[in-house]
Simulated assay, not measured.
Amino acid sequence: MNMTKFSSAAALVMLMSTGTAMAAGMADCAGSDISVPGASCIGFLSGNLNGNKPSLTDINLNLAVWGVHLTQPVASTSMLSGLSGDNVINFTQQLYGDTIVGIHYGNVMDAQGKESNNVTAFYRFNAGNGAGLDSFTTRFDSLSNATLYSTGTAPLTAVPEPGTYAMMFAGLGLMGLVARRRMQK
């Protein structure tokens, strides 16, 4: 392998590890842009990359950094629009475990003071098990829309086995028998 091919391959790997190429001077997102501890971020990427407007190929190119590959468009119930003037994200469903969302912003300014307009950021975070996460906020109030790309499922509650019910009913019957005998004495 000659050095030119090697450096091109290395550059491609670097590009894939940081998401889609960003325009020079474009701001960088941070996990701390949202109110969920431990979040990671890909973006700010030029344009609205949310929902089903861009192709799955475009979305998968960005999410590949996290090893995520979508096979079908997201349901319309997983998309929020008309979020301007508010910085609260509240999907109609509870979020659990490993969660990925995309948020489209109007204007943003990153920690280094770089400003960008019309950008999308993808966030990945653990929404917890137990009660999960109902909503979260972003430090930017220039929201346009958001898409829930994936989240876990509600934890299962234990359901007793039939033998457990049988033992419980037998115990209740035995207690009733003892109570009846005491009343007769």
Rank of each mutant, 00 (worst) to 15 (best):
P54N: 05
G67S: 00
F122D: 08
S78T: 03
L95C: 03
N118K: 00
S17M: 09
L83Y: 12
H104Q: 11
L95Q: 08
T120Q: 09
G43E: 04
S76G: 10
L15S: 10
L56P: 12
N107K: 13
C41G: 07
M16I: 12
L56C: 02
L95W: 04
H69Q: 14
G43M: 01
K53T: 15
A131C: 06
G82Y: 13
K53F: 06
D58W: 10
A39N: 00
S17L: 01
G97S: 03
I100H: 11
A127G: 04
S32P: 06
I103R: 12
P37W: 09
G132N: 04
N50C: 05
A30I: 04
Y123H: 05
C41Q: 08
T99Q: 05
V36N: 07
S7R: 12
D28P: 08
L12I: 11
D58E: 13
F122P: 06
S8F: 14
A24N: 13
D28W: 02
K53G: 11
A23F: 15
M16K: 15
M79C: 03
H104I: 00
T57S: 14
K53S: 15
G128P: 03
N50R: 02
T20Y: 12
V108T: 05
Q94W: 09
N48Q: 02
A75L: 13
I34M: 06
L70G: 03
L49E: 03
S55Y: 10
Y123P: 07
M22C: 11
N52H: 00
T92F: 12
N48I: 04
N62A: 10
S46P: 08
H69P: 00
T92K: 13
